[in-house]
């Protein structure tokens, strides 16, 4: 069933210089094919770390586009570069001393009040998150929504690089999530109880037996254990 495909070559312009690369590569792999060996600009290579934030324009299009180089196919006529670094100040705080009161985020990141709702951050987000909405939610103290809407953030920094109000969205989202996780989400009772049991030594004997057990008996125990459906 295999079709023998002759790879078509396309032209891309890496930082302005023209290169020919095979069609169907990601931007990251296309740059490597062209001879770039990344130090910066490549991390997980799978869309999870945000190291490969990229800015580009497509052929015959005025739009300034942003994407993850490891998750975006290179196209013919693309003008592109990777963003090695996004300078951004992070607020330092002791989570223990914070609360979930509505003003908490704006007190640590007062610049979010400069948001004019231009939505440029949302347009820049390679994860398609509603970035402006979570900044707005943070501004009005809706920590729940800020945490939920920012959850899939990879912290690539493209939003912050594009923001006319100089907001560092991804740090704001991080704060919202930690406050939400610590002070809003209910704590797990069974987890606490289990830790109390462990501390009280409830499993010590059984564990002692297991670690000392001979191979055959261990195998038997293992094979005969019941499996929760």
């Amino acid at each position: 069933m295999t079709e023998d495909i002759k790879t078509r070559m396309i032209k891309v312009y890496i930082m302005g210089r023209e290169y020919e690369v095979p069609e169907g590569l990601t931007i990251m792999k296309a740059m490597e094919y062209a001879g770039y060996r990344f130090i910066r600009g490549a991390g997980c290579r799978a869309g999870f770390c945000g190291a490969c934030g990229t800015i580009f324009r497509k052929k015959d299009e005025y739009k300034f586009r942003t994407a993850l180089a490891c998750q975006t196919p290179a196209e013919d006529g693309m003008y592109l570069t990777e963003l090695p670094f996004v300078p951004a100040n992070k607020a330092e705080y002791e989570l223990e001393e914070l609360t979930s009161e509505p003003s908490i985020i704006v007190s640590l990141y007062p610049e979010i009040a400069r948001c004019v709702s231009c939505n440029t951050c949302t347009k820049a987000c390679p994860q398609d998150l509603q970035v402006m909405d979570y900044i707005q939610a943070s501004l009005r103290g809706d920590i729940n929504q800020a945490a939920e809407l920012s959850f899939d953030c990879l912290q690539c920094g493209l939003c912050a690089a594009r923001c006319p109000a100089d907001i560092v969205h991804y740090h704001v989202g991080q704060l919202a999530r930690r406050v939400y996780g610590k002070y809003v989400l209910p704590r797990s009772q069974h987890l606490k109880e289990r830790n109390d049991e462990i501390k009280a030594g409830a499993f010590d004997q059984e564990m002692e037996k297991l670690t000392a057990m001979g191979l055959e008996q261990l195998k038997k125990l293992y094979t005969e254990r019941d499996i929760e459906k």
């Binding site: 999530r177 930690r178 939400y180 610590k182 704590r187």
Partner: peptide
Amino acid sequence: IQWHEELGVMY
């Protein structure tokens, strides 16, 4: 896991 909860991990 309990330490993570303290750190605000959203399990």
